[in-house]
Computed example of a mutant assay.
Amino acid sequence: MSIGTERSAGAAPRTADLWLRTFRPAPQAAVRLICFPHAGGSASYYLATARALAPGIEVVAVQYPGRQDRLAERRIEAMPELAEAIFDAIGAVSGPIALFGHSMGATLAFEVAHRLEAAGRTPVCLIASGRRAPSRHRDTGLHLLDDDALLADLRRLSGTGAGILADAELMRLYLPVIRSDYRAIETCPPRADVKLRCPIVAIGGDRDPQASIDDVRAWADHAGEGFSFRAFSGGHFFLDDHASAILDLIRAAVRPSVRPAGPEGSALGG
């Protein structure tokens, strides 16, 4: 099954077409990995991941409104509304699914997993990357800061290139997206009492200023069936420096029989 492919001219978009992108269709894959971007991120962050994991795993990347080909759409600043829309879109994805989310994407993946399980569709697993567990939720108020303070936070996290940060025109488009995403994650309702039935794998960077090792380990509070944790060296975007190891971790978590890919099997984000 292919999600998010090109539509014919004039065709009305389906919900799945708006929200989901399949960069490397793998219709024979045993499992589909739904990937949720970080705050300010977009589906294309998982382009290299899709190439690396196919054909054993089909990557389906979520595209939030207000960026890239959805730039003109209203940004959603409430986590429950985002989660409901993505949950509806995932209904078009057939077969077993697993969820992967980085930073804000991890919390959003958790919200979607909770809805999927309530509807009787338990994911294979949830892989939460670089994010405090929902039981450790706190509003840091970043969405209320001025543009200079938001830029300072982006520099602190080291996930945005210096050239991009110095481009005033790009920042004029990018900062409102960041602010909206921060508002969604910081005002997310508390979920300390929610446990999932599916296994949870949590990963984090040992020098992440946004999610300490203890806060990432606390995802164990939400795992009903199984939990594992692994720390990597690095900051908030540690996964960019450990792509090969994290791809292997994904393969092991979602389908133990999936073998490493060929030459493309060493890239994660990008």
Score class of each variant (00 low, 15 high):
Ser158Ala: 14
Arg172Glu: 15
Pro134Arg: 03
Ala83Asn: 08
Ser158Pro: 01
Asp181Lys: 11
Pro65Ser: 09
Gly161Val: 02
Gly130Ser: 12
Gly95Pro: 08
Gly161Pro: 03
Ala168Cys: 02
Glu169Gln: 15
Ala85Asn: 06
Pro176Met: 14
Ile185Phe: 02
Ala166Val: 03
Ala152Leu: 08
Ala166Glu: 13
Arg155Glu: 15
Ser158Gln: 15
Arg121Lys: 13
Leu144Lys: 15
Gly130His: 01
Gly120Asp: 03
Ala109Cys: 14
Thr140Cys: 10
Arg155Cys: 06
Gly66Pro: 07
Ile164Tyr: 06
Ala133Leu: 05
Phe100Tyr: 15
Leu175Asp: 12
Arg131Asn: 08
Asp139Leu: 06
Leu126Gln: 02
Arg75Gly: 13
Thr140Ser: 13
Ile90Ser: 04
Asp88Trp: 02
Pro123Asp: 01
Leu151Asn: 05
Ser94Cys: 04
Ala128Phe: 02
Met104Arg: 11
Leu108Trp: 05
Arg67Cys: 12
Gly163Tyr: 00
Leu154Ala: 04
Ser94Phe: 01
Leu142His: 13
Ala106Leu: 07
Ile90Tyr: 02
Leu165Val: 04
His114Gly: 01
Ala152Met: 06
Ala119Asn: 05
Gly159Phe: 02
Arg115Ala: 03
Leu151Arg: 15
Leu116Trp: 11
Ala118Gln: 11
Leu173Asp: 09
Ala98Glu: 04
Ala109Leu: 15
Glu186Ile: 08
Leu154Met: 14
Gly95Gln: 10
Gly101Pro: 11
Glu169Leu: 09
Phe100Ala: 00
Ser180Gln: 13
Met171His: 06
His102Met: 05
Arg136Trp: 00
Arg115Pro: 01
Val93Arg: 12
Pro134Phe: 01
Asp139Gly: 04
Gly66Ser: 08
Arg70His: 11
Ala83Gly: 10
Ala128Thr: 05
Val112Ile: 15
Val93Ser: 05
Arg155Asp: 09
Tyr182Asn: 11
Leu144Gly: 06
Ile97Cys: 14
Met171Asp: 03
Met104Pro: 08
Thr122Lys: 07
Pro80Glu: 08
Ser94Arg: 14
Ala109Asn: 10
Leu99Cys: 13
Thr187Asn: 14
Val93Asp: 01
His137Ile: 02
Leu116Glu: 05
Ile178Leu: 15
Met104Asn: 14
Ile90Phe: 03
Leu170Ser: 10
Leu99His: 06
Arg138Glu: 11
Val124Glu: 04
Leu173Met: 14
Arg74Pro: 08
Glu77Phe: 07
His143Thr: 11
Thr122Phe: 01
Thr122Glu: 14
Gly163Trp: 00
Ala149Ile: 06
Pro65Glu: 07
Ala168Ser: 14
Val112Asp: 08
Ser158Thr: 04
Pro123Ile: 00
Ala133Ile: 05
Ala98Arg: 01
Ala72Tyr: 06
Asp181Glu: 12
Ala85Glu: 14
Leu175Ser: 12
Pro190Trp: 01
Leu82His: 09
Asp153Tyr: 10
Gly163Asn: 04
Ala119Cys: 07
Leu82Arg: 10
Val112His: 09
Gly91Cys: 03
Leu108Thr: 14
